[in-house]
């Protein structure tokens, strides 16, 4: 993180212009973090649906006809001949043939791994939000003080 503790100097010492700058910077960071959070959530959902799909490739479905997509709109009929094995993309262009149980374990580990990442990200986000709230409070107090000075 660029500045996990952006307030080395007391925020109350900054003038309103500087506060607005800090706020903009915090907003940018928050945006970036929430975007990453959404992306991770998506990846997790993808792995979860993989688990469900692998569960569908069960021995009872052996020999059943399925439609294999060649393109988005073109399908050819196929038959499930090997319900015991699936081929899993493990990254960097490598694919591994696994038994169903192994594949499910692999995807569960992935989902879990993403969950730990999500948890730590959530923590960072709420910390940033706290910073932001504090900053906004200080800004409002400053603005109020300023308008009071203007009145007198």
């Amino acid at each position: 993180m660029a500045s996990p503790q952006p307030q080395q100097i007391n925020v109350a010492d900054l003038d309103i212009q500087q506060l607005a700058d800090v706020r903009r910077q915090l907003e940018e960071e928050l945006n970036h973090l929430t975007n990453s959070f959404a992306q991770l959530k998506q990846a997790q959902a993808k792995f979860k649906s993989c688990i469900e799909n692998v569960a569908e490739v069960k021995p009872q479905n052996k020999g059943n006809t399925i439609l294999v997509p060649l393109t988005n709109s073109l399908y050819v009929p196929g038959r499930l001949t090997d319900p015991e094995h699936v081929i899993v993309d493990v990254g960097t262009g490598y694919y591994v043939k696994k038994s169903r149980a192994q594949a499910i374990k692999y995807y569960e580990a992935k989902v879990d791994y993403i969950r730990t990442n999500l948890d730590s990200l959530q923590e960072t986000i709420s910390k940033k939000q706290d910073n932001m709230n504090y900053l906004v409070n200080v800004m409002q107090a400053k603005l109020q003080a300023q308008s009071q000075i203007a009145k007198t």
Binding site: G93, Y94, V96, K97, K98
Partner: peptide, 14 residues
């Protein structure tokens, strides 16, 4: 991932 493979796991390269 490769460290956990059993001999029955065939590896393919794209």
């Amino acid at each position: 991932e490769f460290a956990q493979l059993t001999p029955s796991n065939t590896v393919y390269k794209l």
